[in-house]
Design a binder for these strands. Structure first.
Length: 472
RNA sequence: GGCCACGUGGCGGAGUGGUGACGCAGCGGACUGCAAAUCCGCGUACCCCGGUUCAAUUCCGGGCGUGGCCUCCA
C-alpha cells in the first residue's frame, strides 16, 4: 500500500516515505483556547484525524506519534479573560478561561468522532523550550534583541518564503502594516516580547532583564521540536496558516536546528464558507461546533457529531467547502441509510479499496463512493455488512447508532412496544383473512402513534413477518 | 497592487487527453392486496473565448465569477 500526499512545499503529490516507519511523526496546529471552536476549526481536526487513523492502519497504531497542541498564551486570551473574569487576578482568570475552553474543545471534537492525539502539549508548559530556541537563534545570528524584544531576522535566511512561495521583495512590496521602528527589516517577526503589567510574564531570553512572553509562532516550533524532533514527517493545518504562521515556524525551527526542512510534508486543508459567504461574526453566520451539535440554531435542527463529520468528509480536504444546511441534511440521510447496520457484527479490518482511496492524498469522497458500493451488497450479505461496518468505524463515521440517536433533538416519540405488538398481531390476522380495510386501519393507527411497519417474507417458512420502527 | 486556490448534471461531489465515478432529489419498473424497505433501469454535466492535439472537461494563454493570504483568522 503506497501512500501519496500532496505537499505544499513542492506543490505536488508525493510518495510518502516516513523517516522512521517505526515512529511516524505528525504535528497539527491546534486551537488557541479563548472561545468556542467554530466549524472552520473543526475541518483540520477532522481531516487530520482521518490521516492519523490511516497512518495507524498502515504503520501500526503504536508506530504513529500525533501531536496537536493547545495554545494557551495569546493576546486574545488575555483580553477575553480580563473581560470575562474582571474580578480575578489576571493569571487566575487566564487559567480559568483556558481550562474551560480546552475542556469545551475536547467535548466538541469527541462528539465528531475524533481520536485523542498521542500528545497534546500546552504552550505554557513549554516556555523553557521557547526561551532556549530564542537563545539559539540569537547566538547563531538569525535573531536579534531590540527594545526588549527578540526578533527573527528574515534576511538571514536564504529561502524564507519557500512554503508560501513568495519572495521577500514581494512581501515587502505588498506590506500594508506599519513597521515597528525597532525592526531591522520590515518582515522581521517577534519571537519574544516584553509583558505589560497584568499580562502573563516569564523570565526573558537573550539577557533581556524585563520579563516577557512568547510571540505567536514560537510555541509550535518549541512543542514540535520537543515531541517530534528537529525534523519530522508531516505538519498540517489550515491553508490560511501557511503564511505567516507556518512560514515563520519553519524559519525558527530550521535556523535553530540547522536543517533543510522542519517537516518533510506540509499539508493544508482548504477554507470553509457558510451558505456561500465568509463566516464572520458581523455577518451573523458564525457557527460553532457546539451550536451545531446542541442548539438547533443552524437549519433549525441539532446535528449529530457523525453527521457533521460525514458532511465534512464528503469534500476532499484541499477543496474549498461551502457549509450549508442542505449538506447536513444529505449527510444525515446517508447515515440513516447505514443505520441498518445497527446491531450487526463488525469485521476486523476496513475494506482495502477504502484504504487505497484514502492513500491517494486522503480522497475521502472516493472512499465514500466505495462505501456506497459496499452498502449495496451489505443489505443481502452479512459478511459485506460486517466489512462495511468496520470500514465506517475505521473512518469514524458510524458507531452502531440508531436512527434516533443520529437525530438528536428530534423528540422521538416514546412508543410503548407492548401496545404495538398486539396491534401487529391483529393486523397480520386481518391480512390473512384478506380484511385489508381492517389491516390498513391498524397500520394507520400505528402510524398515528409514530410507528412505521415493514413487511418481509420469511425465506424459510414463506410467512409474512412484520417489523416496526419509530418514524423519522 | 502582489501571491494562491476554486468554477463539473436540480443539488452534493470524485476523476480523466479518447469507453461521461458515486450519493441525494426526480422519473419509470419489479416485488407488495396497498404501503414501507429492497432491487432493476433512466441524466449526452464539465464558466466563457482562443491555442496545442487526430482528440480537451482534462494541457497552455486570456477573460469572467467566487474565495483565501499579504492585517497574530483554521
Amino acid at each position: 500500500m503506497s501512500l501519496r500526499l500532496y505537499n505544499t512545499l513542492t506543490r505536488q503529490k508525493e510518495l510518502f516515505q516516513p523517516i522512521d516507519p517505526r515512529n511516524v511523526r505528525m504535528y497539527v496546529c491546534g486551537p488557541t483556547v479563548y472561545d468556542f471552536a467554530h466549524i472552520g476549526n473543526a475541518r483540520p481536526v477532522i481531516v487530520f484525524d482521518v490521516l492519523f487513523r490511516l497512518l495507524r492502519e498502515i504503520y501500526g497504531a503504536e508506530h504513529v506519534t500525533y501531536v496537536r497542541n493547545i495554545t494557551d498564551v495569546d493576546d486574545k486570551i488575555n483580553a477575553r479573560a480580563a473581560e470575562r473574569y474582571p474580578e480575578l487576578a489576571p493569571e487566575v482568570g487566564i487559567r480559568k478561561l483556558t481550562e474551560e475552553t480546552a475542556a469545551q474543545f475536547h467535548a466538541d471534537i469527541a462528539a465528531l468522532g475524533v481520536l485523542p492525539p498521542t500528545v497534546e502539549p500546552r504552550a505554557t508548559e513549554h516556555i523553557v523550550e521557547m526561551v532556549v530556541l530564542c537563545n539559539q537563534l540569537v547566538a547563531n545570528g538569525h535573531a536579534y534583541v531590540a527594545a526588549d524584544h527578540v526578533l527573527f531576522d528574515v534576511s538571514s535566511m536564504a529561502d524564507y518564503g519557500r512554503l508560501s512561495n513568495r519572495s521577500l521583495e514581494e512581501m515587502e512590496a505588498g506590506a500594508r502594516v506599519e513597521v515597528a521602528p525597532y525592526k531591522k527589516g520590515p518582515m522581521d517577526f517577534v519571537l519574544w516580547k516584553p509583558s505589560k503589567p497584568g499580562e502573563p510574564a516569564w523570565p526573558s531570553p537573550a539577557g533581556i532583564a524585563a520579563p516577557g512572553r512568547p510571540g505567536w509562532h514560537i510555541e509550535c516550533s518549541a512543542m514540535a521540536g520537543k515531541h517530534l524532533g528537529d525534523v519530522f514527517d508531516i505538519h498540517g493545518g489550515g491553508i490560511d496558516l501557511a503564511f505567516p504562521h507556518h512560514e515563520n515556524e519553519i524559519a525558527q525551527s530550521r535556523c535553530a536546528h540547522g536543517t533543510d526542512v522542519m517537516a518533510r510534508v506540509w499539508m493544508h486543508n482548504g477554507f470553509l464558507q457558510v451558505e456561500g459567504e465568509k463566516m464572520s461574526k458581523s455577518l451573523g453566520n458564525f457557527i460553532t461546533i457546539n451550536e451545531l451539535l446542541g442548539t438547533g440554531t443552524f437549519g433549525a435542527s441539532q446535528w449529530h457529531g457523525r453527521v457533521v463529520r460525514f458532511a465534512m468528509l464528503g469534500t476532499h480536504y484541499r477543496q474549498p467547502i461551502d457549509w450549508t444546511v442542505d449538506r447536513l441534511v444529505q449527510a444525515r440521510a446517508t447515515l440513516f441509510d447505514f443505520s441498518f447496520l445497527h446491531g450487526s457484527p463488525v469485521a476486523d479490518a476496513p475494506h482495502p479499496d477504502v484504504i487505497a482511496a484514502l492513500s491517494d492524498d486522503l480522497n475521502t469522497p472516493s472512499a465514500i463512493s466505495i462505501i456506497h458500493g459496499l452498502a449495496k451488497s451489505a443489505h443481502r450479505n452479512t459478511e459485506t455488512a460486517a466489512v462495511l461496518k468496520a470500514t465506517l468505524q475505521f473512518m469514524g463515521l458510524y458507531k452502531n447508532e440508531t436512527q434516533d440517536e443520529l437525530n438528536p433533538g428530534h423528540e422521538a416519540r416514546t412508543v410503548d412496544g407492548s401496545k404495538v405488538e398486539p396491534l401487529i398481531v391483529a393486523r397480520l390476522a386481518a391480512r390473512k383473512a384478506k380484511d385489508f380495510k381492517e389491516s390498513d386501519r391498524i397500520r394507520d393507527e400505528l402510524a398515528a402513534m409514530g410507528v412505521t411497519l415493514k413487511d418481509t417474507k420469511n425465506k424459510d417458512t414463506g410467512e409474512i413477518e412484520t417489523t416496526w420502527e419509530i418514524a423519522r
